[in-house]
Amino acid sequence: MRALLIILRLGIKEIYSLARDPVLMGLIIYTFSVSVYTVADGVETELRDAAIAIVDEDDSVLSHRLRGAFLPPYFKPPAIIGIADVDKVLDSGSYTFVLDIPANFEMDVQRGRLPAVQLNVDATAMTIAGNGAGYISSIVNQEVARFMSRAEPDAGAAAALQIRVKYNPNLEAVWFNAVMEVVNNIIVMAVILSGAAVIREREHGTIEHLLVMPVTAVEIMISKIWANGLVIVTAALLSLELVVHRGLGVPLTGSIPLFALGASVFLFSVTALGVMLSTFTRSMPQFALLSIPVIVVLHLLSGSQTPLESMPKTLQWIMQLSPATHFVRFSQAVIYRDAPITVIWPELAIMFVIGCLFFMMALSRFRIAMGTR
């Protein structure tokens, strides 16, 4: 009971200290409000308002059908340019796609000669380029099929493909980006706040006060972990409700209490990692420089930005040691698919085991750095 009271009081002291730090408080508020909203609403991964130009060397009925097939919201109204202007508009970045319809295209199609339509793509816009090329190919094939059959392209087909999209029926990028941005911000803030808590004690000179008190390193570490974890979980839940659900209109079909449980287990491991990183530094600038590569790896290779399955096999195995990888899986299963605890308990167990390992390593480093027991 004495140890629990010490941990409780030290944690409350930590929350008071954080509340009196306007920079960190401003960072927390910005990270879980403005940052989530602007990234989720501003980053587009699907094709929208793509700039396309068309070189019509055929000037036939079929080529005019193709010119009129590129419609909003996927494409801006296509511009008609000459063949000599293709390189110029691509070099200037004016258009992402330039479609070249060759001469005698309609006649060759009618005679079954399989003419080729050239699509020039500015691949510096990587996401749009990949998605857009698929859209344009589909549009060209459909229009040619309609022209030849004078009917719908699937008329008389032996089989039809019916697509049913679950969890995000309209394929809205904001639904994915919003929740993943909250998850990513939890990762970032967990490392920053826990490490800053130790650095702040050292810079303000209060660490000496703690060392002469009848408290142990375990009690100091646990108090900082639960206090900063509580702040981050509270901020994340408020962000999900106020920014993601109400502000962006993203439906939260999963269990929020279950998500809070998983976030708490995850924060146990990542805040311990932040404390361990802080023991290698003497000031906030040093801690920031040390934590940047760690945060970048946790952020980019956790599976929140790109699928883990597309990474090299060796890297996939290495990232299984990262709690962020399991937290992203947990979050996607709970928030998007409303998975019960009977399905996602392995991710919780793995995060807890990794957290215990991080805690033991951080405790060892903390004792050495602080010269305490």
Results as ranks from 00 to 15, higher is better:
A151M: 07
G112P: 06
S92E: 14
I136T: 08
L90R: 02
N131E: 15
P153D: 07
A158M: 09
G132M: 09
F105R: 04
E172N: 14
A129Y: 02
D87F: 02
F75W: 09
N141L: 12
V117T: 14
K166V: 04
T127D: 11
P78S: 12
G134T: 08
G82I: 04
Q118G: 12
Q162P: 05
I187F: 01
V165E: 14
T127N: 10
I101N: 02
L114D: 13
V89L: 13
D85R: 14
I81R: 02
N120L: 11
I80E: 09
Q142V: 14
E152N: 12
E172Q: 13
I187D: 10
G134H: 03
G130L: 12
E106W: 00
G82M: 05
N170S: 14
V117H: 06
E143L: 06
V121A: 11
R113E: 07
Y95Q: 11
L161Y: 12
G93P: 12
F70W: 02
T127C: 07
L114Y: 06
A79W: 07
P102N: 01
V98E: 01
G112K: 09
F105S: 02
F147M: 05
A145T: 15
Y95V: 12
E172T: 04
L161Q: 10
V86P: 02
S92F: 01
N170M: 10
P73F: 07
M148K: 14
M189I: 10
A155L: 15
V179I: 15
V183D: 06
H64R: 13
T127S: 13
K166P: 02
V174Q: 06
N120E: 01
D122V: 05
A178R: 08
F176S: 12
I163P: 06
A173D: 13
V165I: 15
I139R: 09
G130D: 06
A157F: 03
F147K: 07
L99A: 00
S137Y: 05
V165T: 14
L171G: 13
T96E: 07
S137Q: 13
A151Y: 00
N104C: 06
Q110S: 04
R113Q: 11
N104A: 09
L119K: 11
V174W: 01
P78R: 06
N168L: 04
A178Q: 12
A79F: 08
L99V: 13
D154W: 00
